[in-house]
Write a protein that binds this DNA or RNA. Structure first.
Lengths: 230, 230
DNA sequence: TAGTTCCGAAACTCGCCAGAACCGGATAGA
DNA sequence: TCTATCCGGTTCTGGCGAGTTTCGGAACTA
């Protein structure tokens, strides 16, 4: 039972563009309703708690009481913000989407360097948590298009996009052939990691990821581990 | 909570064909309990129904009433055979394991030929059903070692074993290098298929599998689609 | 201080489901 | 035919969890 409440500590609340047409202007707090300025300040804690419980218990194992208790909030507070359990989960998943600035991506000059640069303890832990959450809701993906979309937007697409960029750069600089199947190659790492975590229950550590790059991905594009640039 | 420690001593029929009213158990050393010869004849129907419901509803969505109703059996009949829902599910998963005779494997002389020969409508549908079942229980895999073992033994290992054999043959005949990462290569196809089905919700059809072989697996071992043997 | 708005906690309703108990009927051996 | 065992279906209980309501209190405002 790892608590590991690595709370963002009331960090900046994520983008609020989920489902509510509510306030078109995210920047303006809209002070119209005088009398109170505080508004939904507990949302980040509740969403974070929901993600934690989701990762540990799965969707069906998660109860609203667990979420409220972990967020030190009342169940009524949760229901004031979200009308149902599924709404809460969908928004919690949506706000797992870390903004990936394109300029933040590594650019070492070689495909291998770029791929290895992505393997950091932080990203490993981050991916591991996403996988645990995903494990808890895969059975819902088949039934709920909203869940499917939320998962794809928050977990699958960001990672795939990064890989696509790296492969495209390698093509542009002539390091690998232009007729590589970028789409399939971009999915090797995420899918193998997911399989290893969810099905095999083996750790996705740095060693595994490096060997994946060197013995599968690079050979598949005609490169070798020891020869970064041809 | 799920005891699942000991079988009720009367239900020792782990493997069946599971789809149709079964044949009277070829290798049954059971003394058959004098007084009645009929014994547990409804097991295959119930197990098959359990698999169907599991694939459609997931573990938590599946109820014992659904299973009993689909098998046209009473709920009491189900509980006479299996002490709990988890026991039923574990045995149902276990009996999904199709016996894979090693001599049944294709042997076309080339790795590409062997891999493509495995892509048949029957195997595609079979794998699709296994994936649907797997989707329904992944969240349990993290919590129940028994589930994890059952899934691995019935769905993961058989497929991985086939691929390992094919790659090892290719190594033995000198078609591909001996220092290939057979373990990782054998998992590409299952993991990509699982990812595509469970997360992306795209069909795992023949076209996808062929392109996977030609643009990922074969390039990764230094072969080309058009040049089966170098 | 009085008024307003939100909050946490807890009690409550309602429905679902696992599992057990029960019943009448069918079958087979004695 | 009698009896034992299985079967199918039905019913009951107990617990659990989603969602609602209530209430006292905290925080801010005028």
């Amino acid at each position: 039972m790892p608590a590991t409440t690595d709370m963002p500590a009331t960090s900046a609340s994520p983008e609020r563009s989920s489902t509510e047409p509510g306030s078109p202007e995210p920047g303006s707090p809209e002070p119209a309703k005088l009398g109170r300025k505080r508004d939904h300040t507990r949302d980040p804690e509740i969403l974070s708690a929901a993600i934690d419980v989701l990762a540990e218990e799965g969707y069906d194992g998660m109860t609203m009481e667990m979420v409220a208790a972990r967020a030190k909030a009342g169940k009524a507070t949760v229901y004031r913000r979200w009308g149902s359990k599924s709404e809460l989960v969908i928004e919690a998943i949506a706000c797992m989407k870390r903004g990936v600035a394109p300029e933040t991506l590594p650019d070492t000059g070689t495909l291998r360097g770029d791929l290895l640069a992505l393997i950091r303890p932080h990203s490993i832990d981050d991916a591991d948590k996403k996988l645990k959450v995903m494990a808890g809701i895969v059975s819902l993906i088949a039934r709920s298009p909203e869940m499917s979309d939320a998962v794809n937007a928050a977990m699958v697409e960001p990672r795939a996009k990064i890989n696509r960029v790296l492969f495209q750069r390698a093509i542009d600089r002539g390091e690998i052939s232009a007729d590589c199947d970028v789409e399939a190659l971009s999915l090797i790492s995420p899918s193998m990691a997911a399989y290893r975590t969810l099905v095999q229950r083996k750790p996705v550590d740095r060693e595994f990821l490096v060997s994946l790059v060197d013995s599968v991905i690079l050979p598949a594009v005609g490169l070798r581990a020891g020869a970064p640039a041809s």
